[in-house]
């Protein structure tokens, strides 16, 4: 175990983007938020024809909490997109670059089994990267909550500041759950990328994408069906419907914001955590089938790293 931890730390030393990419995005969000807050304060001071006090005055505790969660959800979604891209490129690089620069010979001079090395790369993708992203999310979210809360306080309502801590804690717990199920669900994709990274001599991204595309095309031509494409789509985006409740009673609508000009329709349920429903995903064959496929790809990646001899 201490070996794996040391190896994961080494991955973070090598792949600085794991921390930097989400951190830069987080900082960007905070910056935009800060500018917006300055805007609110400026309107308040110049108080032209905008009835800011009236808008703020229409807030109640629930809406205030929902506002915090709306802002944080936006950050979470964007950080997640960044994270998935970082993970993709990390995994494609992690077993390929060491062969390309021959540093694999150094790693192989240490008493490490190939299984523990490949496991450390998978742990980096499935645990360390999500955790780093969560830390960035918490830090950026905290800054944004304080900035927005203070600005709205200035505009005349303390509700955002007071509703914030609970709404914030809920969002973090919610995000942690989402990251955990997403990691589990993506395991077969992660292990596929590890295998490609261990095997490919060049153009790793191409080798990662071509085989699934080829399967889809061949299936379409030979059988006229789209099973594999559906399967892949399920794997890419199917985790969320499974991970969260499908019970309409629990998805109760508590806050609705409608704007006739912008056509915005946002819904929030009372207590985000009401949506969390691990039962269905843990019972789904998709999750366990995926883990099985992941185990096969993982074993293949270990075998390839062990026996591929191209240095």
């Amino acid at each position: 175990m201490s070996t794996i931890i040391a190896l994961v730390r080494r991955e973070l030393w090598e792949h600085r983007a794991i921390v930097f990419a989400p951190a830069i995005f987080g900082a960007l969000f905070v910056l935009v938020n800060l500018l917006a807050a300055v805007g609110i304060v400026k309107i308040q001071i110049e108080a032209g024809d905008v009835d800011l006090a009236g808008v703020v005055g229409s807030l109640d505790a629930l809406k205030a909490g929902a506002l915090v969660q709306l802002g944080l959800a936006l950050v979470a979604v964007w950080l997640n997109i960044v994270m998935v891209l970082v993970t993709l490129f990390y995994l494609l690089d992690c077993l390929y670059a060491e062969r390309k620069d021959r540093s694999i010979l150094f790693w192989k001079s240490l008493p490490l089994s190939d299984a523990s090395v490949v496991a450390s790369k998978l742990c980096t993708a499935a645990l360390a990267i999500p955790l780093a992203t969560l830390v960035v999310f918490v830090a950026a979210g905290l800054c944004m909550y304080l900035i927005t809360g203070t600005a709205i306080q200035f505009a005349g309502s303390s509700l955002v500041l007071s509703a914030g801590p609970l709404a914030f804690a809920e969002t973090v717990a919610f995000h942690l759950y989402a990251l955990a199920v997403q990691s589990l669900w993506y395991l077969p994709l992660f292990c596929w990328l590890l295998l490609v990274s261990a095997w490919s001599r060049r153009a790793v991204l191409l080798w990662a994408l071509l085989p699934p595309i080829a399967v889809i095309v061949v299936e379409q031509i030979a059988l006229g069906t789209k099973h594999f494409a559906t399967l892949l789509q399920e794997r890419l985006i199917g985790v969320y419907p499974l991970a969260f409740t499908d019970d309409p009673a629990r998805q109760q609508l508590v806050w609705r914001y409608e704007d006739e000009h912008a056509d915005v329709d946002l819904q929030f349920s009372e207590g985000l955590l009401e949506l969390v429903d691990p039962g269905r995903i843990l019972g789904s064959p998709g999750l366990w089938g995926g883990i099985l496929v992941a185990a096969l790809f993982f074993a293949a990646a270990v075998w390839t790293r062990r026996y591929r001899d191209d240095t």
Binding site: A6, E14, E98, R102, I104, L105, F106, S109, P111, L112
Partner: peptide, 30 residues
């Protein structure tokens, strides 16, 4: 590899690693 060491060729040490961290790492792993 617990009892065998090798230097394969010059310049196979990972370029991104700092000297101090190289020592840290081998210390933890060997």
């Amino acid at each position: 590899m617990q009892d065998v060491c090798f230097i394969a060729d010059v310049a196979v040490l990972p370029k991104w690693l700092r000297v101090r961290k190289a020592l840290d790492l081998v210390d933890r792993l060997h």
